[in-house]
Design a binder for these strands. Structure first.
Lengths: 255, 255
DNA sequence: ACAAAAGTGTTATCCTTACACCCATGT
DNA sequence: ACATGGGTGTAAGGATAACACTTTTGT
């Protein structure tokens, strides 16, 4: 066991509040599909959501932001709390210890920390994969983007957490035009549409989608793209940040 | 200080998990207005939301249910978690102790319990006032229904919690037809409309409201009401429970 | 020239909104 | 009779959904 891990456990136990954790459902968009940021634990086939604990004097939202910076290097992302999971038996730590095969969990204080009951608050984040720099934590051999439709088995109740995050996002999609944090500065309407289709899990009508989006009045159209496709070159758009934020404030449709 | 309070503190500290609390925004409807269930602390002018703590082996949702039963005697209510408040400085306990004027908080273990940092999860509940039997807890001299538009100052950040609950309810109102748990078995469309207006804080068109509601197909119409008003007697409706629950499942409008 | 995908247009239908009108009842 | 509030109807406008047509580009 490396020095890094021991140190991390020490500071975790001394600086964080017990019993409460944070799990982040971090979504990005690449190659026409939605991807989820996952950690793979060292020398195991255990996959989990990036997460962490809350420092004693830290706002919970700030803890989520910190975790995002640590795992993705991104400090300004769309980040929103969506649910707190309070089932007392959500974590099967004995099973975890077995799978870990004597890695990490030796020290009694550390084992006790992991064995305690945790209530976890789920946050979802929408980020631009191209700007992200995933870094594994001390327990993980990798931190990587995985196609949302090809997820491996996840630890504990993390699959449930992902499911609920997606459901919250789908609902919010009705009144919050996501996208600015997930797409490159300039994008085509088709790219935006594919992103929406990824969230909703179903195809949308091309013509209607364009009209609906453009009517929101939050886009700026740029000169044509000339990328090599055997077809008419699509317009490039970007978000008019001011109008976009104003729309986020008041929402769309509704009430 | 009575025996009851000491006992309560003892079991609270020994049986509940520290650092996490639950606060309930309990709403009822009476006399054409929305009312909030509030506790008034003994011999003070401190008002607060009913709340409590989570037992060591208790699911968080069950804790919320238990708290609802304890305060209202109602065990099947519409109860839904809406947000977790994780600001580390949300509670000014020194101020509380001053206001309490040496009541309750003497024992060091108890003072320590209250002085610790709490993360609280907010639940909202929609109940039928007529069926409720508000009972104060050991610290309170009263547990009573207060007009949502005439709230007193609340302790800590409880006003913020109420505000956020209302905002969540208003959004959910767009796809969940609330009402079954708040109105008497039989009600008129105008009563339902007044309830909605209470949530939304604005008047709705009478004719359009009726058509929209009836189109949902979750109502049963009964024989006419003959109550003494100098006008046409309105129909009485009740919720068709089966269809209502089915609609709650899939939501209305949307995606 | 042709396929492929982008952009735009058309139509029918539905929903919302703002009213207007009539109905039943108690005074 | 009439004021009061309940029930229903209508017409305009907007949003939605399905689909057709045109345009541009690389091969």
């Amino acid at each position: 066991m490396q020095q890094g891990v021991e140190k991390m456990f020490e500071s975790m136990i001394s600086e964080c509040i017990p019993g409460h954790s944070i799990d982040c459902v971090v979504l990005g968009y690449e190659d026409k599909c939605l991807k989820l940021l996952l950690l793979k634990w060292k020398n195991t086939s255990i996959w989990s959501l990036p997460g962490g604990f809350i420092q004693k004097e830290e706002h919970m939202d700030d803890a989520a932001k910190r975790i995002m910076v640590e795992r993705t290097g991104l400090d300004t992302v769309f980040l929103s709390q969506f649910h707190t999971f309070g089932n007392h038996c959500r974590r099967n730590v004995d099973d975890l210890i077995k799978k870990l095969n004597n890695q990490f969990l030796h020290d009694t204080a550390t084992v006790d920390w992991f064995k305690q009951r945790f209530i976890t608050t789920g946050y979802f984040a929408l980020v631009d994969i191209r700007k992200s720099h995933p870094v594994p934590d001390a327990l993980s051999e990798s931190c990587s983007w995985v196609d949302i439709n090809k997820l491996p088995d996840l630890i504990f109740d993390h699959e449930e957490i992902v499911r609920l995050a997606m459901s919250h996002i789908r609902i919010q999609l009705n009144y919050l035009p996501f996208g600015i944090s997930m797409l490159p500065k300039r994008f085509t309407m088709t790219e935006l549409q594919k992103l929406y289709e990824g969230f909703l899990g179903r195809p949308l009508d091309r013509g209607n989608f364009q009209k609906k989006m453009l009517k929101l009045g939050i886009f700026m159209r740029h000169e044509k793209q000339l990328l090599g496709g055997a077809h008419k070159a699509p317009w490039l758009y970007s978000f008019d940040r001011t109008k976009y934020e104003a729309l986020l404030e008041k929402g769309i449709g509704f009430i």
